[in-house]
Design a protein around this nucleic acid. Structure first.
Lengths: 216, 216
DNA sequence: CCTACCGATCGGTAGG
DNA sequence: CCTACCGATCGGTAGG
């Protein structure tokens, strides 16, 4: 009777096993919860909001999840992993360090500005999360930042630029994109290009034209 | 009996009038609430938290404030006004556009990283605020951004840099400073200098040497 | 400024 | 997955 509302294929062969159905339902719930957390933040999203959107009652959610905190941590991890995969894919085949950085920035923008799927912008907004949970999340974010650490390490930056701060500032911009982005004026690709125009500093020349500059 | 705990000067002349005492108490409450909002965000700060820190009971707060929302709006306004004043003061006497920008950045950093007084970093963290309140706040923030609009307008930037986005990115960095700043490694002044090193682009030359430049 | 309370909502649980 | 709850906490109010 729990499957009352869902159409069932007649042949037993076509029906997936129970635990698979259950895993699907769980994934569905994670996705819904992810959207809500991304839209409203941790605290402003109630367990009842999630349940309602998933079509069940608040108490029933606990058949699928252990707690609100565990739910959030799992979503955050999934989102980080998905984001890392997307960025790695976006870098495939690119060798020029500036081109690689620009591609990574663009992909980060797409990720942060798309709250539609599990690959979502929860990376900010951590202040609404209980302190104990936040500590776990921040550590996993550090792992994720390794990608950018390597990207920045490859840049031919002037010596007086602190690469650590450079990376932190860049990531801070990208992670808070949904706070400052306004649809319409500039495309995401144009914004990525602009960001790179600002962050692009080379040891000797500032433009593509390698000429006309002398060393320090 | 409401003044029971506070020492009272004997002579009537030394005691401030009732309405002044009351205004003092109110200011005290605003300051306390401001710190809490800055630390925990709007939603995570309860009226009872504020009351406790101020030494009274939750219900009694409503003798001083109209509502939690009104309290937050008032604090936000006060903070923005104080920040604008501080930045204007920091710019006094400076004429070089890059020096002015750097001074403004440093002052913004100091403001954002100091959650001790009413001049505090509430500018971020707006997602935990109810939507209707947020709209009011964002508009007043726009007024505040005018300072940076002018600072950026004065910069001798290359033509292919979008000054609007340039300002938005810079402000986003500064406003989220308490999210990425780590005490210890670099001083605030050093960070401001680094930010300027990144955001400094001139039409023809990239260094301080004023020579060897021709006008466009 | 306190006492004493309101209705609403929260995360979570027991028992089926 | 539902019914029927729990204790805790929320913003806010009445009446003094």
């Amino acid at each position: 009777m729990s499957t009352r509302a869902r159409p069932q294929p007649k042949g037993g062969k076509l029906r997936p096993p129970k635990h698979e159905e259950h895993a699907d339902r769980r994934r569905e719930i994670l996705e819904i919860a992810g959207e809500l957390f991304a839209e409203r933040g941790y605290r402003a999203t109630s367990i009842r909001d999630i349940a309602e959107r998933a079509g069940l009652l608040a108490g029933s959610l606990y058949y699928h999840i252990r707690s609100k905190e565990a739910l959030f941590v799992e979503i955050h991890n999934t989102a980080l992993a998905a984001a890392a995969t997307r960025i790695h894919k976006a870098l495939e085949g690119l060798t020029d360090p500036w081109a690689r950085l620009q591609a990574a920035c663009l992909e980060m923008l797409e990720i942060q500005l798309n709250s539609a799927s599990l690959t979502l912008p929860i990376m900010n907004n951590l202040r609404s999360v209980p302190a104990n949970v936040r500590d776990v999340l921040i550590q996993q974010r550090d792992d994720f930042e390794m990608i950018f650490r390597e990207l920045v390490a490859d840049l031919p930056l002037e010596d007086d630029i602190d690469r650590n701060l450079y990376r932190i500032l860049l990531l801070s911009l990208l992670n808070s994109a949904d706070g400052w982005f306004r649809e319409g004026r500039l495309s995401r690709a144009e914004i990525a290009a602009q960001i790179l125009r600002i962050f692009r500093h080379q040891r000797h020349s500032n433009r593509q034209v390698p000429s006309s500059d002398k060393l320090s």
